[in-house]
């Protein structure tokens, strides 16, 4: 077992301990076994799963984005994948399209938005090669969708606005027991799919021409990466709201700590550390709860944004 493997093993161990801590911290004394059952299955377990799956999934989608765009500053949030999901959700919640809620639902619309945004950014990435240009387009897209959301808010009823505002803050506590299998299925499918791409992901590190020369079906792999990212970011955004910086920060941390471009290791790291990071944020928010209640998005940004700023400063 080498140093990198040891690090991953250690991460897995810490993650396990954090899960136990989280389970312990969310425990509430209950009057009956039935109530304890409800508490576990409807409140504590979905919250734990939200943290684990959202953290792991967003980190993985960030890793794929950074690989696809060959840009360490890429991520579902920065590139507007979340914005896309957010926009379609806003259309659904605020725009008065109740038929959408019935036909495709929150998850469907969020996925649709994520896919459309991913496709749009991919198209843009053909034309805009530079890092900064691409990120600027992503920012513009985010601010554009933000404006449309504002317009929708001025039409919507206060009740709808309230609901959308809450969703936009991000939460790990909105998932219900019945939704856990859905999220878990989408997540597992995306992870398995990306495991099948490891060889191609490693080749993509050299750029698409060299990947082609190494036998990669570049077109198909590119589409797969986009699909996985949209699947992960879309489903997680639907259930937990847009959560910032996890997808951007964790893969960078992984490359920095492991000093490798081996995507088997990086994927494992992103899954483990991403889950651990969001879980730790949630544990922190439980501890802080007696003083003030912080939305999860605030915590991830408070920790993630300075790290990204540090990365940018170090690179330039």
């Amino acid at each position: 077992m080498n140093r990198k493997g040891l690090l991953l093993l250690l991460l897995a161990l810490v993650l396990l301990l954090s899960c136990l801590l989280h389970i312990h911290l969310t425990e509430v004394s209950s009057s009956s076994a039935a109530q304890a059952n409800v508490l576990w299955w409807e409140f504590r377990f979905p919250r734990l799963m939200s943290a684990l799956l959202a953290g792991a999934g967003l980190s993985l989608s960030g890793l794929l984005m950074q690989n696809l765009f060959r840009n360490p500053m890429a991520g579902p949030y920065v590139l507007g994948i979340n914005s896309g999901a957010s926009l379609t959700t806003a259309l659904l919640m605020l725009g008065g399209f109740p038929w959408m809620l019935h036909t495709i639902g929150l998850v469907g619309s969020s996925l649709l938005g994520a896919f459309l945004a991913a496709a749009f950014m991919f198209f843009v990435s053909w034309r805009v090669q530079q890092t900064t240009g691409l990120l600027l387009v992503g920012l513009m897209f985010a601010s554009f969708t933000g404006s449309i959301e504002s317009v929708l808010q001025s039409w919507a009823s206060p009740e709808q606005v309230k609901q959308f505002f809450l969703w936009n803050m991000g939460s790990l506590q909105q998932l219900s027991a019945a939704q856990v299998p859905w999220l878990l299925t989408l997540f597992t499918a995306a992870v398995l799919w990306s495991l099948l791409l490891i060889r191609s992901l490693n080749a993509f590190v050299l750029g698409q021409d060299q990947a082609f020369q190494l036998g990669v079906r570049t077109q198909r792999v590119r589409l797969s990466m986009l699909a996985i990212t949209a699947l992960l970011a879309g489903s997680i955004t639907a259930y937990c709201g847009p959560i910032a910086f996890v997808g951007l920060a964790i893969p960078n941390l992984g490359r920095q700590l492991l000093r490798t471009q081996d995507h088997l290791l990086l994927i494992l790291f992103c899954l483990l550390f991403g889950a651990l990071f969001l879980l730790a944020c949630d544990i922190l928010s439980i501890y802080l709860d007696s003083y003030f209640s912080l939305p999860i998005n605030v915590l991830t940004s408070l920790i993630g944004a300075p790290y990204i700023a540090y990365l940018v400063l170090r690179r330039s």
């Binding site: 490891i198 060889r199 490693n202 080749a203 190494l214 036998g215 081996d262 995507h263």
Partner: peptide, 15 residues
């Protein structure tokens, strides 16, 4: 790692 990427055509999917 870089030179080893040349072996990619001969590796399994997990690389």
């Amino acid at each position: 790692e870089y030179v080893a990427l040349g072996r990619i055509p001969y590796l399994t999917v997990f690389g």
